[in-house]
Design a binder for these strands. Structure first.
Lengths: 189, 189
DNA sequence: TGCTTTTCTTAAGCCAGTTTAATTTTTAGA
DNA sequence: TCTAAAAATTAAACTGGCTTAAGAAAAGCA
């Protein structure tokens, strides 16, 4: 259990068996069925979520009452609303499973204690945050520079596994286009 | 000197005089005139840049040969192309001063050495990255949910100091709209 | 297997924001 | 103070992608 998390940490720092024992006193693990909520709106996002196995989406409801997906997460990805997490503020987002999923999570309080007890994990979480930030910068650049048609085609060729696993209308939402327009684009090809 | 950086670090962790001495062996400080480049395209972004004083913009050139601004930074903000920084890859961006500026920077190699010598700074940089990531998530949400008109008005009321300091066409670029359209929006008000 | 819900498609009309092109205003340097 | 460059404005024509509305196909479940 926690195999993917341990592996991911070990990509960046070394862990002894005792470190792992410490770690496991602070994290929680839970299985979720498809379409269960990991975070509800106006909940506070007090956790960082790590997908051991499965698939999640993070979305909010826009002013037209439509779900707007901002992030997906699959095996070995972290996901969270960091504004809510950092500031102990209510979240505008929902985080929901798309498939049956196994999620490891750590609360902000426990992260704090864990990092005091095992300071070398600061490094791991710094790297995680640095990579998450880099990914957000990259996505933002793509959204600035590409037409929606190009963005769609680019996404499909960059992440073919998503196109398999995730319904088309969710990919449309993530890319900021309507399902109708995606249909049109697919017909074109 | 480095007052703002030291202050910023001290918001998150404690620093002794000896820590500061160590730190200053790894960072560089330099003054730039208005419109000087801190990072040129196809340069590798090997540094994190901290604005002691002044104002920077980060941009790339899009396929229509137009500058596309993705980020500003003013006093006490960090700025960098993290994809290039993390992966030692060439950067698509330029980072340029908008005003005369004083910049503190640290290279990836020196950051690595610094963090080995002063591991408690891992915590500071984790927090910096976590906040940067949160800011990127927030901006992304605003771009998903707001019309360009609302995004412009929201920006002006959220960051009035920018509207003073930065030319209008740069704000237009950052918000992903044309200078002509911004003119129209201003006339409307 | 049949029923219900979810997902995807089609097509016409439409509009927020861009493009183009020209002019005016502001700023900065000599 | 003059001049050149940079920044902002105006207005008309245009378009990428959305909206609306309906129907078809696929998937889940009893």
């Amino acid at each position: 259990m926690n195999d993917n998390l341990i592996q991911d940490i070990r990509k960046h720092i070394s862990l002894t068996d005792s470190d792992i024992a410490t770690l496991s006193r602070y994290i929680e693990q839970k299985s979720y069925k498809k379409k269960e909520y990991v975070l509800q709106e106006n909940g506070f996002c007090r956790h960082l979520f790590f997908v051991e196995k499965g698939c999640l989406r993070m979305y909010f409801i826009n002013d037209k009452a439509v779900e707007q997906i901002v992030q997906f997460a699959i095996d070995s990805w972290w996901i969270s609303d960091l504004k809510s997490f950092n500031n102990s503020a209510p979240s505008d987002y929902y985080i929901q499973t798309i498939e049956n999923s196994k999620i490891t999570s750590i609360s902000i309080e426990k992260l704090d204690h864990l990092l005091n007890e095992l300071p070398k994990l600061e490094r791991y979480f710094r790297i995680i945050m640095q990579k998450g930030f880099a990914a957000a910068q990259l996505k933002s650049k793509l959204m600035y520079e590409m037409s929606k048609e190009n963005f769609y085609n680019h996404f499909c060729s960059s992440f073919p596994e998503f196109v398999q696993r995730v319904p088309q209308y969710m990919i449309a939402s993530y890319l900021g286009l309507t399902p109708e327009y995606v249909s049109e684009l697919r017909k074109k090809k």
